[in-house]
């Protein structure tokens, strides 16, 4: 019975949505034109002829993500941050510490280990490049950070978790790094306002280039002849730190050896919490 209701709902959903798409064939199915708003974004993403109305980044997506609609991205970062905090809260009381004795032969074979000693360096270099060129080419802070987090995963799988913990890559240090990255994002978001307060000029939250109502405050688009697109480079850099650290925490928590986690858990269960 329940199954049949489900199938009926499924068919109705499909029919309804296809009807809507069919009824709005001109607007919901792509044509050779884009919407007016899209043309504005494409035109003004890099438009050095009007310094009051441009994001100064040739990558239209990055300029939307961090400049035109920067607020969304700040709070998207916050969603990710809160999800990781929630995960840590669910794993609280579980020690991410080295056990007293570690068996020497943890992990995979010597060949794999030797290769793995080289590869993470390359991964992090590529990730950094993705993140720091986010305002010029497809990519950006989140993508770079996600790529960088592959390195610790590789080490986790090949060497075991203790290898990372022994070298100081643990929950606390990663949380610290993450917090530094996020604080950087927060400061960059308020950078123009802070500069404005210091120099006595009006400025906007999340402002990048000068604006008609705040012409005196801006973040530099070029540094030493290199295009950094003002706040975009800083956002990408800090997001890179935050995301890489965040993913590392998640992987550390989720690959925790189960026996170790539960032995510690049982001590905690005794005290029943009443809501």
């Amino acid at each position: 019975m329940r199954r049949w209701i489900g199938i009926c709902v499924l068919i109705l959903t499909i029919l309804g949505l296809s009807f809507v798409v069919a009824a709005n064939i001109n607007t919901l199915v792509p044509t050779t034109n884009v919407r007016t708003l899209a043309e504005i974004y494409l035109k003004y993403t890099y438009y050095p002829w009007d310094k009051y109305f441009t994001a100064m980044s040739p990558e239209a997506c990055t300029s939307i993500v961090w400049d035109f609609r920067g607020l969304d991205t700040v709070f998207e970062t916050m969603v990710f941050y809160l999800a990781i905090i929630g995960a840590i809260a669910l794993a609280r009381g579980v020690p991410l510490k080295l056990p007293k004795e570690i068996k020497r032969d943890l992990g995979l074979s010597l060949i794999v280990k030797t290769v793995t000693k080289i590869v993470p360096v390359l991964i992090i270099a590529v990730a950094g490049s993705i993140a720091l060129h986010g305002h010029l080419t497809p990519g950006g802070g989140f993508q770079g950070g996600a790529t960088a987090a592959v390195a610790p995963v590789l080490i986790l799988v090949v060497f075991s978790q203790f290898y990372l913990l022994k070298r100081g890559v643990n929950k606390n240090s990663m949380l610290l790094l993450r917090s530094i990255g996020l604080t950087g994002i927060g400061i960059t978001a308020f950078a123009a306002v802070l500069i404005g307060l210091a120099t006595g000029h009006y400025a906007f939250v999340l402002q990048n280039q000068p604006k008609p109502l705040a012409p005196d405050v801006s973040l530099p688009a070029f540094v030493g002849g290199q295009l950094i697109s003002g706040s975009l480079w800083f956002f990408n850099f800090f997001e890179f730190l935050a995301v890489a650290a965040g993913f590392t925490i998640v992987f550390l928590l989720i690959t925790l050896p189960e026996k170790l986690a539960e032995a510690k858990e049982e001590k905690h269960v005794v005290e029943v919490e009443e809501g």
């Binding site: 916050m78 604080t183 306002v193 939250v205 109502l213």
Partner: peptide
């Protein structure tokens, strides 16, 4: 340019809460 305080506060209130949340582990 003149300071438009009500607008600035409207814009700052929610991002400021985000900053409060972001800095908490560090502090």
């Amino acid at each position: 340019m003149a300071w438009n305080i009500p607008e600035l506060i409207t814009g700052a209130i929610v991002p400021l809460l985000a900053v409060f949340a972001f800095t908490l582990p560090l502090l």
